[in-house]
Simulated scan of single mutants.
Amino acid sequence: MREAFHGELAQLGEQLDAMCGLAAEAMRRATQALLDTDLALAERVVADDDELDRHRGACEDHAQKLLALQAPVAGDLRTILAALYCAEIIERMGDLAAHIAATVRFNHPEPAIPPSLRDLFATLGQRAGDMAIHLRGLISGFSPDGFAEMDRLDDAVDALHAEVMATVTGTDWSDGVRTATNVALLARFYERFADQAVSAARRLDFATTGTLPN
């Protein structure tokens, strides 16, 4: 009985891992669409967000059945509750990637960001994607650095976000109010994507240790 139950827990982890993979790919594609002003790719990111929503529903159904039928306690209970929490968080990460793609679509055929910020947003996309990939490692248990590494990656995203905001609010900004608004919103989407990954990592750490990290 316990062996079957732990097999179900492993399957739940695999579902979360698949969701993280979809969120990471959505961020990669959304960033590429942003950098290339690629309408077709942006449309695909927006359309594919439905798949992540379906995965979230399946993950939640699985977790709720385990809660109802197995009456888990202690560590197993924390694991299932963490899975429920993380499924919602990862789905939000996908939504944020879709928001980036939707901004590309709204501004097309004009680019949503000026050429001067292209490298900054390319780095933001890389760092945010790295966080989703690191989250996969936490889910699978193959990330020895755990929450500390996720916190470090988040600091890097925060620094990039601050650099973008300093640029658009500086006296040298010459690309207009509309572009400044786009840039600020886009930078916020990346920053929120990173924050969601940290939130999920914190809950996973709690499921393992029983103590929330600072």
Results as ranks from 00 to 15, higher is better:
145 D>S: 13
200 A>I: 08
105 R>W: 01
85 Y>D: 08
202 R>C: 04
103 T>N: 07
44 R>C: 02
52 L>P: 00
62 H>E: 07
129 G>Q: 15
71 A>K: 11
154 D>L: 11
159 A>D: 13
51 E>D: 12
118 R>Y: 02
1 M>W: 08
199 S>G: 07
76 D>Q: 05
188 R>N: 10
214 N>P: 03
71 A>E: 06
21 G>S: 10
87 A>N: 04
204 L>N: 03
143 S>L: 11
131 M>Q: 15
180 A>W: 05
183 V>Q: 05
23 A>T: 08
37 T>N: 15
50 D>P: 00
59 C>W: 00
62 H>R: 14
209 T>H: 13
74 A>T: 13
179 T>K: 12
51 E>C: 04
180 A>I: 09
206 F>I: 08
112 A>P: 00
118 R>T: 13
33 A>Q: 07
108 H>T: 02
132 A>P: 01
74 A>R: 10
122 A>S: 14
88 E>V: 14
81 L>S: 10
24 A>I: 03
179 T>S: 05
142 F>G: 11
67 L>H: 10
92 R>I: 03
185 L>S: 05
81 L>P: 00
2 R>Y: 02
151 D>F: 07
96 L>C: 00
203 R>M: 11
67 L>K: 11
154 D>I: 01
43 E>T: 06
32 Q>E: 10
54 R>A: 09
90 I>C: 05
180 A>Q: 06
72 P>C: 10
57 G>A: 12
96 L>N: 02
22 L>I: 06
160 L>D: 12
197 A>L: 07
176 G>Y: 06
